Amino acid sequence: MASPRTTFDRSRSLDSGSHAQHLDVPALDHALVQMRGEQNPRHTYINDLSLRTLRSEVSPARTPTPIMPSSRAWRTLFSQEIAHDWVLEAQLMLMTMSTGILDATTYSAFQVFATKQTGNTLFLALYALDHPILSAEVEKNVAVSIGMFVLGAAFFGHLSRYVHQKRRAWLLASNLFQTLLLFAAAALRQWAPRSTTGPSALGVLALLGFASGGQIVGAVTVGMAELNTTMVTGTLVQLSNDAKLFHLHNAPRNRRVMFYFSLIFGCFAGVGAVRYRDAALGLLVAACVKAVASLSFFFNHGIVRVDKGVDPEKQGERRISGAATPISKILWGD
């Protein structure tokens, strides 16, 4: 009895999606050598088909994903507002750590705070009445710190109104600029004369004050009030008066607690850096922490605005909702 020939029905196999997708393409090399036979008008032998043709018919070509996203995808990414999720919480806590490092460092080296303007305001009164606890030369440090902080807050605050402060491009640009100011302050402290007062100290405080004012404005306007990166007094009051303080699920309470411990951790890190080396190391560590937080704004989920039409219950107002979208879907559509 003649041995059966190995054939496949092209009309059935290649037109049947489920069967075609499960053909063992690597086994075709063995079939190409062993199969011989006559042509049949209803059947086609595997050795009569090229392997490339079979692969293309078995696995239909898919539209390849572009390696580089389109310019439109990049514009969409940078123009989106960022989502309020755990990523934003982590970024603000990193900035809080940076604030703690800065204040611990500047108070140790210059007897003023970079961000805590409540303390600096108290120092103004001490200096004005010639209190012996602080030297008179430090008054200039206080004046520069407060003045540059206000200028920084005004600059970043007013500019953010024109560029939509919650958009990714603004958050990246503004925080990276503040990071550069921190690195510049660390470099100035490292290579300029190291003194508590004088031109070099005033230069360092000017850079830090301007950057700190901008950071706090960004933290407040981003829409997560519990993580303001510097104002711990209000946080403690809100935490102690929280009606749901002992509830299992309480996101605002959790943010306030993490904010407080982030600030404490930053303060310990700043004091340790100053005692181990110098204020230059503390400023460098604060700048590196700030850099990580700033660069990470590239990876936040973006908000896709969806227009749901007119709401008849609100006198014709349009209903707009947002959905968080990962950057991979924004850039490549995956």
Rank of each mutant, 00 (worst) to 15 (best):
R36H: 07
A206V: 02
P26T: 00
H84L: 03
S3R: 09
I82N: 08
V274D: 12
V304L: 14
R55Y: 12
R10W: 05
M35T: 15
S328R: 09
A31G: 06
A211Y: 11
V58M: 04
R10A: 06
I46K: 12
L124C: 06
R275I: 06
A104M: 03
F177Q: 07
L236A: 13
G272P: 14
A27L: 08
D130N: 12
D85A: 01
T96I: 10
L202V: 13
S70V: 08
E313W: 14
L51C: 01
A206Q: 07
S212N: 05
G218I: 11
Q80A: 07
V306H: 15
L188M: 03
M231E: 12
V58K: 01
F297M: 08
T44S: 15
P199I: 09
E137G: 02
F8I: 08
P26E: 00
S98T: 04
V289S: 09
H249N: 12
T235E: 00
S328M: 09
L77T: 10
H43K: 07
T118E: 08
D334V: 05
T115A: 13
E313Q: 14
N175T: 15
M35P: 11
Y107L: 09
L207N: 06
A186T: 04
N175M: 04
G119W: 07
A273N: 08
R189Y: 04
V163Q: 11
L281V: 09
V144R: 03
E89W: 15
H30G: 10
A143P: 00
G147L: 13
S195C: 11
V33R: 15
S200W: 06
W191N: 03
T325V: 13
S200R: 03
W191T: 02
E317G: 11
I146H: 01
I327K: 03
G100N: 12
H19S: 05
S200K: 02
F261G: 00
F8G: 07
L102K: 12
G17V: 13
R167Y: 05
A225C: 00
A173G: 11
S294I: 13
R305Q: 14
I264K: 05
A324M: 06
T325K: 08
Q238E: 12
S160V: 08
A153F: 09
W332K: 04
G213W: 05
E137A: 06
L129T: 08
Q315I: 00
L188R: 04
L134S: 08
S174I: 10
A169H: 11
T115D: 07
A192V: 02
D242V: 01
A153E: 01
W74L: 06
T76I: 14
T76S: 14
V306T: 13
T99P: 05
P69H: 02
R52I: 13
W86F: 07
T63W: 08
L102H: 14
A104R: 09
F246R: 15
F298I: 09
A219K: 01
N47Y: 04
P199L: 11
A83T: 09
T76V: 15
V271K: 07
Q178L: 03
F123E: 02
T6F: 04
M95F: 05
D242P: 00
V33S: 15
L49P: 01
V87G: 07
D103A: 01
F297C: 07
T6M: 04
L122H: 06
L227G: 12
F299V: 08
F113W: 15
A201T: 06
I330T: 07
G322I: 02
A154K: 05
R36Y: 02
